[in-house]
Design a protein around this nucleic acid. Structure first.
Lengths: 146, 146
DNA sequence: CCACAGTAACTTGTGCACAAGTTAATTGAG
DNA sequence: CTCAATTAACTTGTGCACAAGTTACTGTGG
């Protein structure tokens, strides 16, 4: 029952340490860490529905909706109803949002340095965590169905 | 720059998946995940100052103070000024708080099952994450001093 | 065509998490 | 001893994160 022995606490502490390490880098871009994740998605895809963002980040609509509104308020994205299915709302990069990508190129480099790990170690840890998330999702799914 | 390739996102997603897996177990105890971590500390030590709790969990006073007030509101702890140093406030288990430990014994067992990992794998992952947190703390410390 | 189940998004309320600023008690240099 | 710096705790404000409930649109069976 010791706190320090539990994997859950190690993950919880690591998550907060990582976002804290990102903060000074992201402050210069005027982004929070979840906002940065959304921008990463949009720099790749150009535009995404609220549902697609929520699915990719494993987040709730109730988290994503206000987050996108703040990005809109910052002028980085526009939000508009889809025309083919008017239930959907699409987030689209503005010119300003697209331009921000150039200034964000240094962020992953700076973070790789902070991690203090070799690339292969980093990949191994990442893959193990991905497997953990899938295992937990499967467990949660099984729990719901019983 | 791909989201799925980044270690940071794997940790962020894993952290939320873990606390989500704890939620149904902790709901039965009437605790949130951070509250459970505080109770783990108190079941071990009996009483701790706000500073000691904040240090152990790597949290801010601004997070811990209201958290302890909610535990006090739930009747699990009492909060009182220290007599030897009146700046300090101590959190102490109530009888009710102490009794809760018996009902919480099943929580780590249930979680070990959800993780779907062998004990040695779990320990290896935990140690690697602990090392990561220390590395990041050291990096942040170095950044502040420059 | 029409009730209706299902889906996408939003809203409200609670609880972290952290920055920045405030207050009160303690410590220590001169 | 005195007062300036330090420390412990609290407060305020912003932004996630998620549960639960609401609204608007879609697609399908009858």
């Amino acid at each position: 029952m010791l706190l320090e022995d539990q994997l859950c606490f190690a993950i919880y502490a690591a998550s907060r340490a990582v976002t804290a390490a990102y903060r000074p880098l992201l402050d210069e871009l005027g982004l929070t860490y979840p906002q940065y994740l959304v921008m990463l998605l949009l720099w790749k895809h150009g535009s995404l529905t609220v549902k697609e963002v929520a699915t990719a980040l494993h987040l709730d609509y109730g988290t994503v909706t206000p987050l996108l509104k703040r990005l809109q308020g910052a002028g980085l994205i526009a939000r508009r109803r889809r025309t083919d299915d008017e239930r959907g709302v699409e987030a689209v990069l503005t010119d300003e949002g697209r331009d921000l990508q150039a200034r964000a190129l240094g962020v992953p480099v700076g973070m790789a340095e902070a991690f203090g790990l070799e690339a292969d170690e980093r990949d191994a840890l990442r893959d193990r965590l991905h497997a953990l998330v899938e295992s937990m999702d499967a467990y949660a799914g099984a729990g719901r169905s019983s």
